[in-house]
Design a binder for these strands. Structure first.
Ligand SMILES: Nc1ncnc2c1ncn2[C@H]1C[C@H](O)[C@@H](COP(=O)(O)OP(=O)(O)OP(=O)(O)O)O1
Ligand SMILES: [Mn+2]
Ligand SMILES: [Mn+2]
Length: 602
DNA sequence: CATTCTGCAAGC
DNA sequence: GCTTGCAGA
């Protein structure tokens, strides 16, 4: 498939945490604001800045005090503190509301962070070109910029010679849909966002930021070389860190356009096969990375740092913070279990200490059989003691802790807790961290039912959505003439389902995030190119004989959404999982004081 | 003394 | 399978 085939959109909320705060307190409207976490030390650390405050020179990473100097009338909103730590719940929930709106436009949606998501709307754009090319007018793309073009000229080209400019025509239609997506996000949530529209993820991400806030940008492929002349290498996703620095230093280049000088062979030789080829393609505006459908996180974690003198120095304090962190984890995991029908099977405990000026970190994957706070805490504390007692103690120095857990891939999930505390006395600058991580298991205790309409055997947990499916299908049959197939990509979530599957950890299987209706439709295994094709709407493999009814299903879903505007709030997901097993023992040196504290205590 | 997250892949 | 490091919001 051509590198110009797809229409990929990256939607990113504008100064997201600030917008969340502005909506909660409308008196902040129009004023310069920033969001800080903690405020006792130099006014707290700034993690989000709204646009009026940016004009005044305030940036992320500044301290609250510094922001006040730059902009005396700035309002500093504070991240809530619960259990003595920052609590990001309200931002996660706001992000979830946004994702629920985006999800109505396509199931090929990948949440990339709390405030952004990639959407592959190739099929929707193609379908709409067949009937709505006349809508590609400036008045329908009022918030759209096109790199390298005046929008008027760009639209003129694609509408007058749609075949010759078919790739740009798809991008233009993608932008029209993106305008609608963004309008819907604002209508449903009150939040403004920006978007990038391009043939791949890397470029969509890159151009989303060119016209913020509340605007969107198209990048036609032929505009890549000129754009790259202006783009520092570190601005491209994946090149913002050490690897990007290696490029600028070793290759003596600074702009993306300079990368094109190198042959694929040279790049493969300089780095490895995978990296070299990737870089060679990126230099030409080519990126084949798929938008991987994923609506919910694979891991749940929390952590706390204890910088400098606040480093934890007693067993009691360590125990206290492990309790606080496991309490938050327990609460969030329980909620996740209700919403997503999955359970973590493992937890990862992680902590770091500062020993002789150097960070030493440890982590252990531990089995998790219960979400009860005290049980999780017990598991973590036992592991912690074991690790520290095996460490060679001699010179007592500093430490800090932190814990975290993660959810697992398709079917599993984890949690993580992070805390960070200094353990011993002495040295003023110390820190530690603890982490916990787990995987999930899905509940297999589903009973079977027979559908009264189609007589198929289905899981109890999928019964409701299965009936919804018949309901929607019937309406479609009656009113199909009102709705063209493939008009707008949209998709509602279905109810949560149980379902079990097997270990899919690390296996690339799209079925992991499938909704129950889709699972029902895709229940046959053994699908291959000889007996099936990929659905243009959802990219799932469908048997030839089922493709017509499968497309009806998509139409039904769209219609159902309009009829019943109540999107059911749960997604499905998961299942199985695995694991348990734990770890090995690694020695850590210089773990003096905390070890003795722990040993003394128990 | 930026902090609190999340995802991915390499290397063992 | 597990730990670690990198990259990003
Ligand atoms: N380094 C960080 N540490 C903690 N939270 C962060 C960090 N970076 C970003 N966040 C949070 C706060 C942001 O509002 C939110 C989304 O990040 P991001 O999209 O990069 O910026 P933003 O939404 O604040 O502004 P922009 O309008 O430029 O997108 O994630
Ligand atoms: Mn943002
Ligand atoms: Mn973002």
């Amino acid at each position: 498939m051509s590198y110009k085939e797809r229409v990929v959109v990256l939607v990113d909320m504008d100064c997201f945490y600030c917008q969340v705060e502005e909506q909660l307190d409308p008196s902040l409207n129009g004023k310069p604001i920033a969001v800080v976490q903690y405020n006792t030390w130099r006014g707290g650390g700034i993690i989000a800045v709204n646009y009026p405050a940016r004009e005044r020179g305030v940036t992320r990473h500044m301290r609250g005090d510094e922001a006040k100097e730059k902009c005396p009338d700035i309002i500093l909103a504070r991240v809530p503190e619960v259990r003595g730590k920052a609590d990001l719940t309200k931002y996660r929930e706001a992000g979830k509301r946004v994702a629920e709106v985006l999800q109505k436009f396509t199931p090929i949606l990948e949440r990339a962070s709390v405030d952004e998501a990639y959407l592959d709307i190739t099929e929707a754009a193609k379908a709409r070109i067949l009937r709505d090319c006349n809508q590609l007018q400036v008045e329908n793309l009022k918030n759209t910029f096109v790199v390298g073009y005046d929008i008027q000229d760009f639209l003129h080209n694609v509408t007058n010679n749609a075949e010759y400019f078919e790739d740009n025509c798809r991008l233009a239609m993608g932008a029209l849909i993106a305008e609608e997506i963004r309008a819907e996000v604002f209508a449903k949530t009150g939040y403004k966002c920006s978007a990038g529209i391009a043939h791949n993820k890397i470029l969509a991400k890159l151009v989303c930021g060119l016209h913020k806030p509340n605007k969107q940008t198209i990048l036609p492929h032929e505009s890549v070389p000129a754009l790259y002349e202006e783009i520092p290498i570190k601005k491209v996703s994946g090149l913002g860190g050490k690897f990007g620095s290696t490029l600028t230093d070793q290759l003596k280049i600074s702009k993306m356009s300079e990368l094109i000088k190198f042959t694929e062979k040279e790049l493969v030789k300089l780095f490895d096969e995978k990296t070299g080829k990737w870089l060679y393609n990126i230099a030409r505006g080519i990126d084949y990375e798929q938008v991987t459908p994923r609506l919910i996180s694979k891991s749940i974690g929390c952590c706390k740092k204890f910088p400098g003198k606040s480093a934890l120095t007693s067993a009691e304090s360590v125990e206290h913070w492990v309790n606080e962190l496991t309490s938050e984890i327990s609460e969030r995991m329980e909620k996740d279990a209700q919403e997503n029908n999955r359970r973590a099977k493992q937890i990862v405990l992680h902590f770091t200490q500062t020993v002789n000026e150097r960070d030493v970190s440890n982590s252990r994957t531990l089995p998790l059989n219960s979400y009860e706070q005290h049980r999780i805490a017990h598991i973590c504390l036992e592991a912690l003691k074991k690790i520290l007692s095996q460490a060679r103690c001699s010179s007592p120095v500093e430490r800090n802790f932190n814990t975290s857990k993660n959810l697992e891939e398709s079917e599993c999930s984890d949690e993580s807790i992070k805390s960070n505390e200094p353990a011993t006395t002495l040295i003023p600058n110390s820190s530690e961290e603890l982490n916990v991580l787990d995987e999930w298991e899905q509940n297999n205790l589903d009973s079977l039912k027979t559908c009264p309409d189609c007589k198929k055997t289905i899981l109890q947990s999928e019964f409701e959505s299965h009936i919804d499916y018949h309901y929607a299908l019937n309406i479609v049959k009656e009113e199909a003439h009102l709705y063209k197939r493939k008009s707008i990509e949209s998709n509602t979530m279905t109810r949560a389902s149980g379902e079990s599957s097997n270990h899919l950890r690390n296996t690339k299987r799209k079925c992991g995030d499938m909704k129950s209706i889709e699972k029902f439709l895709c229940s046959d295994n053994e699908l291959n190119e000889g007996n099936s094709e990929l659905c243009p709407e959802c990219n799932k493999r469908i048997k030839f004989e089922d493709i017509i009814s499968h497309m009806d299903y998509h139409t039904a879903k769209k219609l159902h959404l309009e009829i019943n505007q109540q999107p059911s709030a749960s997604s499905i997901s998961d299942k199985t999982s695995i694991k348990s097993k734990n770890k090995r023992k690694k020695d850590v040196k210089n773990m003096g004081s905390i070890v003795s504290f722990l040993n003394n205590k128990r």
